[in-house]
Amino acid sequence: MTALSEKRSQQRSQQQSQQQSEQQPGHLNASARAGSSPGRTDAAGGSDRSAAEAAAATGPDGTAPGPEAPVLSVRDLRITDRAGDREIVHGVGFELTPGKAVGIVGESGSGKTLTCRAALGILPPHVEVSGGSVHIAGTDIADLTPRQWTALRGSTVSAVFQDPASYLNPSIRVGAQIAEVVRVKTGRGRREARRRGLDLLRAVHLRDPELVYSQYPFELSGGMLQRVLIAAAIAAGPRVLIADEATTALDVTVQAEILDLLADLREQTGLALVVVSHDLAVIAQVCDEVLVMRQGEVVEHGPTAQVLHDPRHEYTRLLVAEHEQYGLDRFRAPEEETR
């Protein structure tokens, strides 16, 4: 435990120093900050502006990859339920640079979903951020107007959730719904939106994009629907995709397909991922960094390999042990030796 708290305090001090260097511009508005902030590349600054101004922005295609500015940084985030007057999330912090993937693992009610919802600006009524900060592409979300939020969602930060069917209108064809997202978010014309929509369906590895485009949601399987939603989520070229239990309701084979797709997107487009799951193995499969949450608290935070290899907290050990005793890992580990 002492080692853990030491590690955490180290992280915190690191974060604080970063925080200081980044917060130099103070409370200037976002576009001004982008220009004046010293250690930042032009590309990042450009999408900074786009986030604050309008949806008609240069896509992320122009974003230069690199370890430079984080696209999403959450610092000591605290979330409080005003109705019950109690803090639900007690200080979550992580940084996400382009092309990276952070995983949040925890049981239901651990605050992992609320953390994501805070980063998307869609907290339920009565629930609000009561401390810490969230910066999306350098913009502090606390200063955002509803209009700026709308511009930001989809084009900078986007999300997919557990039950794909409930996010699509059952009486409208899939293609029309994707084209709508494309048109609203990128301001393209009808024909172009269709072309872009088909490209997106192809990008999420749907076998027959033309067919899927003309189908209704009920004609598609759960895995296909989740892919359609991922296509819609990446339509406006976001830089961060939050996948909140996005594969929980799916068969394992389909789950693996979706996780592989996310990994492909991450490699090909530099999309940064936040993967939320109750299963540590799902996160191990895609993420470089993992946060273990329990009852609103981050009980463990570190590189995935380290957390898996050397879990410090008792709860993390339980998560690892569950797989080693009851999962496939039980058969896999000795296989390495026999080879």
């Binding site: 076998r207 394992v252 084979t253 789950q255 693996a256 397909e257 592989d260 990994a263 299963d279 540590l280 193995a281 799902v282 191990a284 499969q285 898996l308 690892v320 797989h323 080693e324 999962g327 496939l328 890992d329 896999r332 580990a333």
Partner: peptide
């Protein structure tokens, strides 16, 4: 494919290519 798809703590990057090949073989 089932074995390769089951989430485990120790996954290799090669699994992804293997799964893709198996899916193609099954369809």
């Amino acid at each position: 494919l089932l074995v390769s798809s089951a989430p485990t703590l120790h996954t290799a990057p090669a699994d992804r290519a293997e799964r893709a090949a198996l899916r193609a073989a099954l369809t």
